[in-house]
């Protein structure tokens, strides 16, 4: 079974885990395909350990609303170069993120459980351009990237749940046609 899975996995897989059993390796390869956002931790914890991520999410959600990042109007202004606001938000976030990652690498900061923090370089593929432009078209239509979609629902715009279902359908469609799309 593992061998079959291994053969099916395309060669553009960029992240390989050296530790752990074979089963874990195969799963991590599939799980980390076409994504930045991966759980690198090998630790097993009870479910309620995840509540700390909810707390981070709550802070994120409050910022989204209070800085109007989830506003369809702000996104329209951004793409019409009518306001600096969104460029300021994203630019500051990137600078703070860069400094943080640099510090984590430089001082080999560990997680609160003592695990080393891991980074895996990503490889270029055509999807980043074709998919990126496709995503941009959708971003300007809905006025929201995936994070703000959930925040918009939280503000009471319940119709956005339809957008989320549609986005899940889009992701599924990509998964279905993945092998036939240029990468």
């Amino acid at each position: 079974m593992e061998n079959i899975l291994n053969k099916q996995i395309p060669q553009d897989t960029t992240t390989l885990k050296k530790t752990g059993g074979d089963v874990v390796n195969t799963d991590f390869e599939v799980r980390s395909l076409d994504t930045i956002c991966v759980n690198e931790s090998q630790k097993q914890h009870p479910w309620w350990y995840n509540l700390k991520y909810s707390l981070v999410g709550i802070i994120f959600g409050i910022v989204f609303v209070k800085a109007e990042v989830i506003s369809w109007f702000r996104i329209q202004e951004m793409f019409r170069l009518q306001s600096f606001h969104m460029y300021g938000v994203i630019g500051t976030a990137v600078v703070v993120g860069m400094i943080s990652v640099w510090l984590i690498k430089k001082f080999k900061v560990k997680t609160i459980y003592g695990e080393p923090i891991e980074f895996h370089p990503k490889k270029f593929n055509k999807g980043q351009i074709i998919g990126g432009i496709t995503f941009g078209l959708g971003w300007a239509l809905t006025g929201a990237c995936p994070g703000p979609l959930f925040a918009q629902i939280g503000t009471g715009a319940f119709v956005v749940a339809v957008v989320v279902v549609s986005a899940i359908a889009g992701t599924w469609t990509y998964g279905y046609f993945r092998d036939r799309l240029p990468h």
């Binding site: 994504t35 998919g131 990126g132 995503f135 078209l137 986005a167 359908a169």
Partner: peptide, 11 residues
Amino acid sequence: GFLVGFGSRYA
């Protein structure tokens, strides 16, 4: 929504 979901995963 569809373009957001399809495009973000493709990218």
